[in-house]
Design a binder for these strands. Structure first.
Lengths: 205, 205
DNA sequence: TCGTGAGTTTACCAAATGGTAAAAAAGCGG
DNA sequence: CCGCTTTTTTACCATTTGGTAAACTCACGA
């Protein structure tokens, strides 16, 4: 229904679009949508403002593009939660992947958090069409595991929400954690150990 | 060093300041600092913009006032975590109080989340001077409980962080949860049951 | 090497925004 | 009811911001 056009982008187009999106991700994730100006993005990208508007239709189009890109990488870890493996290992693996994403892609995590915090004004449909089916499917998978007695009884939905909450928190609230637990390396190691232990204990039948 | 002045505010001053702060809390928690305009606050408060600037020195002063007020109510639940009681009951009580705050004061939770997400530009000092000592003290308390074998071994810092993450998530990511778990009443009941069960299992020796 | 289209810059603009000055209106103690 | 203070409104302003028009430069294939 929309831009599934080919996209025969020249070398320079690709490079400049990438720079703009990278700069915009920096800004939007730190200052939110309205807190970010085109001039900031332009300066961070090393381009002039009109030049940026040559590559994107406007501020909102940049933001939406980022959100669309985000959705894919964001769903990936959950998609890999598969019925074939050992349930406990599958879930702990998911937790590990999710925590890794918080550490390696904190900007993406904050962009998402900002968008949701503000009521998901530009993402509502995506949640409904992209996230929800996946969430429901994985809830069913977990419910099956519970029914089969392969993991301890647990509300699948709230389990997934707990995993999101705990893992994303380390990216989204980094500014707070930097004050409370200043040793960065120890923080991530401690986080992984704690979350694995916590969810293992919760899920072991 | 600053406004610890008496504050002999007239009836009308108190009322109007309250209305402004309430309206500003609505706006700031939903749109962030830069995403909120004085005109929005004015309209929501039912006052004219210059009138608002009669009560507050400027936009930033309103925001800082809200943040200061927030700090007090925000620390209260953790302060009540006391060494006298049964450790497990104390911690579960804390979790219950924290979740209740997410349900009853989602605006405050989101205001806080917004501020931290953006790097705590107007709250950094408060975290250091207000939150950190409390956090450290409660970590020591929990460590003592662990050392005494009264709760299962757990990293106190990460335990507290997990409690924050899971409880606040229900307020901060409400827009997302509204899509995934539309039945509002069931959501809060399920959240309480799930979190109590999860942390009880984690902490029971 | 020259023409042409892709890419970039300069010079703007209208609207929005935080904030101010000063006059007007309300309150209110006497 | 008066006079003085508090509160509110009207009329502005300078800056910022998203965006545009059009001129200009550059790459590159014929």
């Amino acid at each position: 229904m929309n831009d599934a056009q080919p996209k025969p982008r020249s070398r320079i187009q690709q490079e400049n679009r990438r720079r703009i999106l990278d700069a915009a991700l920096d800004m939007f994730s730190q200052h939110g949508y309205r807190g970010t100006t085109l001039d900031q993005i332009a300066e961070a990208a090393g381009l002039s403002k009109p030049n940026i508007l040559y590559y994107f239709g406007g501020k909102e189009e940049i933001h939406v593009t980022l959100l669309n890109n985000l959705m894919r990488t964001w769903l990936a870890p959950l998609e890999r939660l598969a019925p074939e493996g050992e349930p406990l290992e599958e879930l702990l693996g998911y937790i590990r992947r999710k925590l890794q994403m918080s550490r390696d892609f904190p900007r993406e995590s904050r962009l998402f958090a900002n968008e949701i915090l503000q009521g998901a004004p530009r993402m509502g449909p995506h949640l409904e069409s992209g996230l929800r089916p996946l969430f429901d499917a994985k809830c069913r998978l977990i419910a099956d595991w519970v029914a089969a007695g392969r993991i301890a009884p647990v509300d699948p939905g709230h389990l997934i929400v707990s995993i999101w909450a705990t893992t994303q928190h380390y990216a989204d609230f980094e500014a707070q954690l930097a004050v409370l637990m200043p040793e960065r390396d120890a923080l991530w190691r401690g986080a992984e150990a704690h979350l694995e232990a916590m969810f293992a204990k919760l899920l072991t039948p």
